[in-house]
């Protein structure tokens, strides 16, 4: 008994000392059979530490979440909030500080019996400040299928992070190969040039992370001159990623897929 307690205390101490802690959370306590809700891995970092986006940039490793569901339940694609950029001595990384939710929509079967169900997940991450510490976590959360809809205590966090997920508003654009890389042209993005814009490529082997992206505005089109990745062995058919546009205090993110023109 004492040994168990000591072990438990040690575990808690280790968790508190860890640069990143993990919880599995659900947006609801109770939903009706056949309804959907959201589940998320919540990664909480100590100040100055970060974990990584699906493309971590020049170093680091992507954060992972692997959810195990009850039989017959279905899960949608993992939604990654728009990443942020970190400069580590000239190397550029893409990721998140403070806290991030990686969420996915869960569909319950209409035929499921009412009752309490357990969902589980495994997560892994590399947390870095100057140094890096890899971490692994496991989480469990219970969701009840009943005749009501009751949000969970974490519902507000879902709402907050949902705003960070890039929108799929149809932006059209293209990528024109240049000597150094590509000229990306994207529209419509309003009537005036944004204060800042940056394109986060989803593949780590498409664009240079460290090269400056030259932003210009031409007749209602946002133009970004970006450098090819040194790991890009052949020209891709399309360049996918997240465009982040800043106007004043507003930071908007768009999921973008740009066809590459042949020269």
């Amino acid at each position: 008994m004492i040994a168990t307690l000591v072990a438990a205390v040690a575990l808690v101490a280790a968790q508190q000392d860890a640069p990143c802690t993990f919880r599995l959370i659900a947006s609801v306590e109770t939903v009706k059979p056949g309804a959907s809700f959201w589940i998320a891995g919540e990664y909480t970092m100590k100040p100055e530490w970060h974990v990584y986006w699906l493309n971590p940039g020049d170093s680091g490793l992507p954060t992972t979440l692997d959810v195990q569901l009850p039989e017959g339940w279905k899960i949608g694609k993992l939604q990654w909030p728009a990443p942020h950029k970190f400069d580590a001595g000239g190397l550029i990384n893409y990721g998140y500080e403070r806290k991030v939710l990686l969420m996915a929509e869960v569909q319950t079967p209409a035929t499921a019996k009412p009752g309490s169900y357990a969902l589980a997940a495994k997560a892994s991450w590399l947390a870095c400040k100057e140094e890096c510490v890899p971490g692994q976590g496991q989480g469990r959360v219970k969701v009840t299928l009943g005749d009501a809809v009751r949000p969970s205590g974490d519902a507000a966090a879902f709402e907050a992070f949902r705003k960070e997920i890039p929108t799929r508003t149809k932006l059209t654009g293209r990528a024109m190969p240049t000597n150094e890389g590509y000229r990306l042209e994207i529209q419509p993005l309003g009537d005036s040039a944004p204060d800042e814009a940056y394109f986060y490529a989803a593949s780590g082997e498409a664009l240079s992370h460290a090269a400056k992206q030259a932003v210009s505005w031409s007749a209602g089109k946002l133009v970004l001159d970006v450098k090819r990745s040194e790991y890009s062995s052949k020209t891709p058919e399309e360049i996918r990623g997240v465009l982040v546009v800043v106007r004043g205090k507003e930071r908007l993110a768009y999921e973008v897929s740009l066809g590459v023109l042949t020269r």
Partner: peptide, 12 residues
């Protein structure tokens, strides 16, 4: 001949 390295960044 050229792949993307992975790991911690070099602490220059």
């Amino acid at each position: 001949p050229k792949t993307r390295p992975y790991g911690c960044n070099v602490k220059y």
